[in-house]
Amino acid sequence: MIPAPFDYIRPASVEDACRVLADAETAGDEVKVLAGGQSLLPLLRLRLAYPSALVDLGRLPELRGVADRGDHVYIGALTTHDEVMRSGVVREHVPLVALATATVADPAVRHRGTFGGSMAHADPAGDLPAVALALDCVFVVRSSDGEREIPAAEFFVDYLEPALEPGEVLLGVRVPKLGSGWGFHYEKFHRTAQAWATVGVAAAVRRGDGGTIEEARIGLTNMGPTPVRARVTEVALRGVAPSPSGSNGSDPLRDACAQADAGTSPPADLHARPDYRRHLARVLTRRAVGAALG
């Protein structure tokens, strides 16, 4: 299918982009920001969106790239998935981001799709929002009024709705380095390789010297209109000494993950009904935590 007509604006700078977006807001025009376009173009082709203009940020080098900033890794919004998953900095310091990014769509889509685009699309079935939530990333945005920071916990407002005000551009994301002792895993469950996650679990787990879990961060994909933290399980995992499953029939990890779905409101769609998603969240959280522990 074929998109409806729209104007195309290629701002020369971020300031320029913010001005364009602000003007559009004033004029009441519905403009959309174009990053890699891998989610937006299918929507336009199916005529599920009718923007009056696209503001293409794809030519702004200042939005692209990965930097080691001491206590965090900064990922420019327009950095492609492919660049993120290959980045040595990302792989060394925030490996959960690389692990989850490698499961996004397929190689060709990862060459065009961007880290910030996926975040700003705020699709709870996307793999990266749950990671951002689990790692307490900070979103750096700019408008004509200046820059502000939005914690991940506040960024994903509702289904496909980020906390970006009209006129705001996502510049990049600060991904905190968690330090040593952490293990990571992204467990994605989908019906075919290129299908969206039915449920995904982003897990970061820190083990103490004694081998018991001291801290866990769990983000859930596609378990509600936004990504969700499995807070009850995070608490339950603290102090758990993982033992090999089946040795005496007990599995403390499984027990700790038995409420991984608490506080979620999973959707019903073609691929799963809510009770199955809840079940998957429990099983997959157990698996993700186990894998993160190595």
Binding site: L34, L41, P42, L46, R112
Partner: peptide, 26 residues
């Protein structure tokens, strides 16, 4: 029309891309 099938894959500046999911202006 959803970028799933990949029949339209080309290389764009050296890397594979689905040409149905890229605007000519891009």
């Amino acid at each position: 029309d959803t970028g799933n099938c990949g029949a339209c894959t080309v290389t764009l500046d050296g890397r594979s891309a689905k040409s149905c999911s890229v605007l000519a202006v891009q």
